[in-house]
Nucleic acid binder design. Sequence first.
DNA 1: TTGTATGCGTTATCAC
DNA 2: GTGATAACGCATACAA
Lengths: 343, 343
Amino acid sequence: MQRGATLKDVAKLAGVSVATVSRVINGHANVSAETRASVERAILKLNYSPNTIARSLVTGRTGVISLIIVQEDPIVPTTWFYELPIVQSIYDYLKGQDWELQIAMCSYREFQEPAFLPRHFNKRTVDGVLILSAWMVERHIVSELKERNIPHVIIGAHDPDYESLCIEYDNEGAIRSLVEHLWNSGHQIFGLIGGAPNQLHMHGRIQGFASALEEFGLPTWNRLTKYGDWSIESGYELMQEFLAREPNPTAVVCGNDYIAVGAMRAITEQGLRIPEDIAVVGFDDTVVSQIISPTLTTVRLPLAQAGRLAAERLVRELDKPSPDNRRVVLPCEIVIRDSSKSS
Amino acid sequence: MQRGATLKDVAKLAGVSVATVSRVINGHANVSAETRASVERAILKLNYSPNTIARSLVTGRTGVISLIIVQEDPIVPTTWFYELPIVQSIYDYLKGQDWELQIAMCSYREFQEPAFLPRHFNKRTVDGVLILSAWMVERHIVSELKERNIPHVIIGAHDPDYESLCIEYDNEGAIRSLVEHLWNSGHQIFGLIGGAPNQLHMHGRIQGFASALEEFGLPTWNRLTKYGDWSIESGYELMQEFLAREPNPTAVVCGNDYIAVGAMRAITEQGLRIPEDIAVVGFDDTVVSQIISPTLTTVRLPLAQAGRLAAERLVRELDKPSPDNRRVVLPCEIVIRDSSKSS
DNA sequence: TTGTATGCGTTATCAC
DNA sequence: GTGATAACGCATACAA
């Protein structure tokens, strides 16, 4: 990297001291209009721009926010559709606020290790951190962040005691809407095919499913609630198990769109029709929901909104730490398509 | 951020000078075993770790690499499946080499603006840059990078004069393999439905298509080569145009999987069968290629390999600038599925 | 309103 | 081998 002009160069050219130049740059009040003008002229002439590193050394702030993306282990490529919109919206906001974004990716396992945070923060190269995780953020992690006095916001999850700022989705509400929609079409026997239940998304959906059934006075069938992973294969196999015995469900709520695709495959292979014999709904509104036939009813998560909000709150916290309401739960939108339409 | 122990603290505790501590930390030779041991003890005791910012100020290196993701304007979410595997592999490599990754996203238009690079690099907060773009990286950008002496690697594109290090995919070879595969099944009349032809991916595929037809002694039909955007709708409409007049193609090569999905829809709506009447192939091996029926023959790009290689070369260049062979073209793999199988 | 001087935590260049 | 000490480029307390 070439070395550019420094404060000293500007000071010399403008015929003032470095302190004055510094004041101009940082917009301090006590500078006469004339000197300000001449300094600004010098800055322009030398094409000067402040050295961020030097500034950081003295202020103790870097102007960098870190985003830690916590992933399944091994990594499942189909989760990427979820992460990038969030990254995008975070970046868009940060760009406008003149913060830089640094990213780190790790598995859920790595993130838990005691050595992880030290390794990440010992460099003292970031001011705050956004944690994008689908799992509970353990207590020891939050403590360490507090101890180090590192502002942080959790996206899509929370810590056990709700001490950290966090942005979550209203999974309960979403699944309640789905059940209501299906109930309105006359469905009575509901199945649930979930992904990994240790992920908080799934946790909320399981809760919501149970309470929605109760709300609408519907029975719960234990054998019609199963968990696999988030894959097409998983959905296929678990749906087959549903179909192997009576009673068959008339409506199946799936943990994501891929599970739903697998379930639909199992259903049609049995010669049953969707939605006439069995209705299927998914989660996440991925492209596949529009491509599969029949098109899939699903739930759209407010990803961009979550990312932006998280970035906003972190920046606010960095500007001036304040007691904030800790938790935000964003509403989701259900997208009704053919796989659940009553004739 | 709390302030931790400094060199001075360690020096005092170990009863040596800061210079000696610095030598120990940086693994210099001229330190006696005993002093080294005692310094290391002090470091452990104080839980000391070097301040990266201070170090950067004197060395002039930040240990940070920037990744600029250049996108369509407006952003098309379906391109994300392409970018994240690359980001992932870049990060994985960098993590092992103790480099940090900072990211920036911008539209093709923004990237071209003269103000973009200055704004990005004036902070002097990164040592090198990876450019992930689907478009030609203009001459003025490369010049500016050279002038500022910023090592860089381009992923998925190149500059007009091939002056920069770049990693590309063998689009020509891939499309040649596709044509060969279809030709072996007896196809004679080929159509091409492309995405935006100003993107270099498409450029290479167009070239490859033309030369492959020639190689196999096949005629070129101008009206059977069309470009839209990369969407399902685009594929659908352009395929309808193909089917509106004779001769109909018997094989259609699509610029990506989404275009192919649209094309398939148009074909089946006309009552034609895939692959019996018309074979369809796509590009990118996205999930939809496995979900659509019939499953879609497509091309798998070596994304992870590209990302890793780019990071590797940039790091090497940063360690010691060297005349490197400038361009790497990675082979692609064609994935044959039902949409092109000869009965 | 402006200038001087000090410190931020390192690395590197000298001496010794 | 080791220790002073001068940079690195900036912000700021204090003096003027």
